[in-house]
Design a protein around this nucleic acid. Structure first.
Lengths: 205, 205
DNA sequence: CCATATTGAGCGAACGCTCGTTCAGTGTAA
DNA sequence: TTACACTGAACGAGCGTTCGCTCAATATGG
């Protein structure tokens, strides 16, 4: 009764949207648990508490589910972009905080495993690849402006290639996080290693 | 007639070994082309010019084929370990040569794709994971001694954590190479970026 | 040195399953 | 009454693996 007129979603539409999200979350969980190719649509349906057929009422194909899962990652990435947004503290401090947060994020197995799963799918599925690259580029762009700011204030090496360096830092963090998963190194050590390496590479000298 | 006595492999054994290698090479090619899970045993057999059944005369399972493919990678890695073996030139020069060669190797799509495929399988298949870690550790160890040598001769920062730094360098190279695949950046630029970043991080100051 | 027995590489149909996807039918909110 | 979320059986294709079989290369006994 309340909001059926004009805008607001009806009870039914709300329920539908909730179902969709349930399925998406179930898919995410299964992809992390068993990998994309090892996960069947039946697994997703079961985990979501829904029939196989109904999955196809909400998504046109298994592939599209993966695409939407990949889009979920972008939302996570926006958090890190906000962390890198223009602000007062010196660049090196912002940088350290970012490295710390990003490593911590990727050191959580489910986040890292999803990233690797997407990395691997991105090679052969163009739309996943594009999403993946776009995400990375956005993050790299934010990081680049932090570095540029650091160069301007004279805090960092003047001859720094901000854009290239930003990408290298991302790769450093991601690689280090992967190592922490397979070799289960403590997260704090990874953070310190990476931070130390990065600040050594960026300092004036 | 020649060597049937005592040791040497008979004609038959030689042919068998050759077939085995054919199948292995076919599998490698298919895994790179289409990915491990998207490749069927029939695809491997077809590419090798052999029947499905015969594949199972040479390998107990598809999984074991992957394991042997992963072992092939170690042979490649040995090449880089030799490059890092104790020698005369200054550490920074050895380092630069290594970075250059390793990036070039990984910038070849088939090498990188195989590495990613294995990375992704290593998460859920323990034996692949162990092989993978062992390979990386070996390379990291060789790189570590180069760095240690550089510290001893006073060429590199004295407070360097050689072991941790070695691993970071490897991750940097691998990450950068992956970026070159998805964004097709020129190899030489990647080499220069990485080399510059690394030498900045390691130099005294 | 020949005749014969043994081996195991090689084949491809077939097995039991799981896959992604479809669809006729049902119940319920609008 | 209409629209549609929802179900689950069914489909055809493909999966990894096994099977009974053939046949050339090898080992063995005379």
């Amino acid at each position: 009764m309340s909001d059926s007129r004009s805008e607001g979603p009806t009870r039914r539409e709300a329920a539908t949207a909730r179902r969709r999200e349930q399925i998406l979350e179930a898919a995410l969980a299964r992809f992390v648990e068993n990998g994309y190719h090892q996960t069947g649509v039946r697994d997703i349906a079961e985990r979501a508490g829904v029939s196989v057929g109904n999955v196809y009422n909400h998504f046109p194909s298994k592939h599209h589910i993966l695409v939407e899962v990949a889009e979920l990652e972008r939302i996570e990435f926006d958090r890190f972009r906000r962390l890198l947004a223009p602000s007062d503290p010196p660049a090196s401090e912002t940088l350290h905080r970012f490295v710390s947060e990003y490593v911590t994020f990727l050191a959580t197995p489910e986040n890292l495993i999803l990233a690797i799963e997407l990395t691997s799918e991105a090679i052969r599925q163009p739309d996943i690849g594009e999403l993946f690259v776009a995400n990375r580029e956005g993050l790299a762009a934010s990081l680049t402006s932090v570095l540029e700011r650091g160069v301007e204030t004279g805090e960092l090496r003047a001859d720094l290639d901000a854009s290239g360096t930003a990408r290298l830092i991302l790769e450093l963090v991601e690689g280090a996080a992967y190592r922490s998963l397979l070799g289960d190194n403590p997260v704090q050590r990874i953070i310190d290693d990476v931070s130390g390496f990065v600040s050594a590479a960026l300092r004036k000298g």
